[in-house]
């Protein structure tokens, strides 16, 4: 079970990333727990200055952009 967090205060890009992550997780049948972190102080704990960001098992994987579906699938399946 992997722990996925999407950091974002609610901008359109953050929602897009959450949606994309859910699609990829479902498609690749990955066992994951996806949570959205919207509280700004919690986001700052990850040292992230540009949203959205993707955190997998407490590690920031990327920030400030939305990956392509292929890229995200590669990251999630190579864990």
């Amino acid at each position: 079970m992997i722990e996925i967090k999407i950091l974002g205060t609610g901008c359109p890009k953050c929602k897009a990333l959450e949606k994309l992550t859910r699609i990829v997780v479902e498609k690749a049948a990955i066992e994951a727990n996806i949570t959205k972190v919207e509280n700004i102080a919690d986001i700052m704990r990850y040292n992230v200055m540009v949203t959205p960001a993707l955190v997998i098992n407490e590690k920031v994987i990327f920030k400030g952009r939305i990956p392509t579906m292929n890229e995200l699938q590669q990251i999630l399946t190579s864990l």
Binding site: T9, C11, P12, K13, C14, I40, I43, M44, N47, V48, M49, V50, T51, G64
Partner: peptide
């Protein structure tokens, strides 16, 4: 430096911090 207005708050906090 690339940054969009929805990142203004985290950026501000990150700088001040």
């Amino acid at each position: 430096t690339p940054f969009c207005s929805c990142s203004a708050i985290p950026l501000f906090l990150g700088f001040v911090e």
